[in-house]
Amino acid sequence: MNQPSASTDIRRDLVALLPRLRRFALTLTGGASEADELVREIAGRAIQKSHHWKGEGRLENWLFSMMRSAWADEAKKRRRMDPDLVDVGSAAESRKPSNFVLNLPDGLASAFLLVDVEGFTYAEAAAILGIQPDLFAARLCAARLDLAAAGARTSERRA
């Protein structure tokens, strides 16, 4: 009887994580097509580099960190090519209630998603984003305050 290889296990687990990866990619990119492209890139990279993941810790931490690094690297490349370019994730296209989380300023949407939606601890989420836990806590607080204010504005308009 053959033992399944690590890449087979990663592929199986990767499929289960695709919706979560896409939600996180949306907070980074701000657009569905860019998010889908980022998820495809990270899924391919994870399969190619599956030998680097030793099965210690949570696979999603590794994948989310890989995604954040890839997006940061891509953003640096875009800024070098066109310094006047506005980052897609930072431009709020609309303030519809369904887009409140995606329209949070840079870094805030990801902080909110990782803790309040995905259930990561502050320390895990800070590691995924590559920032200090105290900075992460400040971003999460700012995200929650911004969402609360947006909810209050929406409630006042409906009344």
Rank of each mutant, 00 (worst) to 15 (best):
S65I: 01
M67P: 05
F100P: 05
G44W: 05
V101Y: 03
L113N: 01
A25G: 03
V101F: 06
F120C: 02
T27H: 00
G107T: 01
A43Q: 05
A46N: 06
A43D: 10
W53Q: 09
F120Y: 03
W71V: 04
A43I: 03
D106Q: 11
S33K: 14
P83E: 07
S94F: 11
T27F: 01
S98K: 12
L26K: 07
I42P: 02
R45A: 12
E118K: 01
S94T: 15
E56K: 14
P105H: 06
K96Q: 11
F64A: 00
P97E: 06
V86L: 15
G31E: 11
F24E: 00
G57H: 05
A70R: 06
D106K: 09
E56G: 07
H51T: 15
I47R: 12
A111Q: 00
W53F: 14
L28W: 01
G31S: 13
K76R: 10
E118Q: 08
S98F: 08
P105C: 08
L104K: 03
E34A: 13
D106N: 10
M67R: 03
S98N: 10
G55E: 10
H51K: 13
L28G: 02
R95N: 10
K54P: 04
E41H: 09
A25Q: 02
G57N: 07
G30T: 08
F120K: 01
F120V: 01
A75P: 01
L28Y: 03
S69H: 09
K54W: 07
T29P: 04
G55W: 06
N61C: 13
H51C: 12
G107S: 04
E34F: 07
L38T: 11
L38P: 02
G119I: 07
R80M: 14
Q48R: 14
T29Y: 03
R79Y: 04
K49E: 14
N103H: 11
H52G: 10
H52R: 15
G119N: 08
G89F: 02
M66L: 13
D73G: 09
R80Y: 11
D82M: 10
A70C: 07
L113S: 00
R80F: 14
A35R: 04
F120Q: 00
K49H: 12
W62N: 04
D116N: 12
N103P: 10
A109W: 01
A72M: 05
V88A: 15
G107N: 02
S98E: 15
M81G: 09
N99Y: 15
L85I: 12
K96H: 14
R58V: 01
S110M: 00
E74H: 13
I47Y: 08
R79W: 05
K54E: 12
L104W: 05
L38E: 04
S94H: 14
G119M: 04
L38S: 04
E74S: 06
V115G: 01
E34K: 09
L59R: 00
E37K: 08
W53E: 08
G89K: 05
A35M: 05
L108D: 03
D84Q: 14
L102M: 14
S94D: 15
Q48Y: 13
A72K: 08
R58K: 12
K54D: 14
